[in-house]
């Protein structure tokens, strides 16, 4: 689809409505001189020798600009609401059937348990790929009880799944504030300033130790990085499904972190062996030999133990803080 008005009206008007066009052109090494001429006129007057030096042809630039505008306009459209995600079982590594049909809803937390190599990542990948019997497990994934559009597979604007991996390194040379700002801009959020401030505030509530907006991301501790990424995932990511790979021992308030995601109405799947997180979940999928071997629904007896586990956890946390502040532990 070509957006004729954008090409024909004065460039000033087009750039006012779509400021990211300027950034697009500059990423190809082109500079824009704002005038009353049209975008079409601007493109027509580009020197072919200059384009060749930039490794660019007029046709390719036109095609890319059209694709880019379509993508940006799609970002502005609200997502279809996701009310459920259904996993229909396939086979395990020995070819035995899984006999599972499981429906997950927004705000629910599903824990995935099982030893390393048992197939937890494959399950998460099946969901991300919206598998239709075309992966090694033969599983099928339905969204809102239907076979979803395959656009979910390749869309970068509307990703179905945001994945929080175990590694939390940053390679960008930016402050925490600049980093979240850049992420917000790439997602075209409205009033990014406000959103960025909110994310930093929430991240600080999760982190064991406070950090400032001007702290470089590369200087954040493991816990602070995780806190920042969880807050970012909750408030910036539009993806309705959150996959989390182990958030234990990370120096953050795990319960608050999880509640943040639940409150934002995400479907949360979490690979974890942490007893507190496992008991906070609505169910546990037990993965063995590449297949879902068992589904354990949360039960009251287990949940009653949650309080005790939290007390134990708080005791450990208090000891941690004493060590941090230079105290000794002769008296527990």
């Amino acid at each position: 689809m070509r957006h004729e008005t954008l090409y024909q009206q004065p460039l000033t008007a087009t750039l006012a409505e779509h400021p990211y066009i300027e950034d697009f052109l500059s990423s190809f090494g082109l500079t824009v001189t704002v005038s009353n001429n049209s975008l079409e006129h601007y493109l027509d007057q580009l020197n072919p020798d200059l384009l060749e030096d930039l490794g660019l042809s007029r046709e390719q630039l036109n095609r890319s600009l059209d694709d880019f505008l379509n993508g940006m306009l799609a970002l502005r459209k609200p997502l279809d609401k996701i009310e459920s995600l259904t996993i229909i079982g396939g086979r395990n590594k020995s070819g035995e059937e899984e006999h599972v049909e499981l429906t997950l809803q927004p705000g629910e937390v599903t824990c995935i348990v099982g030893p390393t190599g048992s197939g937890k990542s494959r399950l998460l990948a099946d969901i991300e790929w919206v598998a239709q019997g075309d992966t090694p497990t033969g599983r099928r994934i339905l969204i809102n009880d239907q076979v979803p559009d395959s656009q979910w597979r390749f869309s970068t604007e509307h990703k179905l799944v945001a994945q929080l991996s175990q590694n939390m390194n940053f390679v960008m040379d930016l402050t925490a504030e600049e980093f979240i700002q850049m992420h917000a801009e790439s997602r075209l959020v409205t009033n990014p300033q406000e959103k960025v401030a909110h994310i930093l505030e929430q991240a600080n509530l999760l982190a064991g130790e406070q950090f400032r907006p001007d702290t470089p991301v590369t200087a954040l501790s493991g816990g602070q990085s995780r806190a920042l990424m969880i807050a970012d995932m909750a408030f910036l990511s539009k993806s309705p499904i959150a996959l989390i790979d182990e958030i234990e021992n990370a120096g953050i308030d795990r319960k608050k972190a999880l509640n943040l995601l639940i409150r934002e109405e995400k479907i949360v799947l979490m690979a974890t062996h942490d007893p507190i997180l496992a008991l906070m979940g609505d169910r546990r999928l037990v993965i063995k030999n590449g297949g879902i071997a068992k589904v354990i629904e949360a039960n009251e007896t287990e949940r009653r133990n949650l309080q005790r586990l939290e007390e134990m956890d708080n005791q450990l946390l208090a000891l941690r803080n004493r060590i941090r502040s230079g105290e000794t532990l002769e008296q527990l």
Binding site: F24, S27, F68, N70, N167, M172, H183
Partner: peptide, 22 residues
């Protein structure tokens, strides 16, 4: 992608998307 955070992956992908949107 396993070495960097989710947000950094998204920012990087959007930069790639910008120069090759098709």
């Amino acid at each position: 992608g396993d070495i960097v955070s989710q947000a950094e992956r998204e920012v990087f992908a959007s930069r790639v998307k910008q120069v090759n949107p098709g």
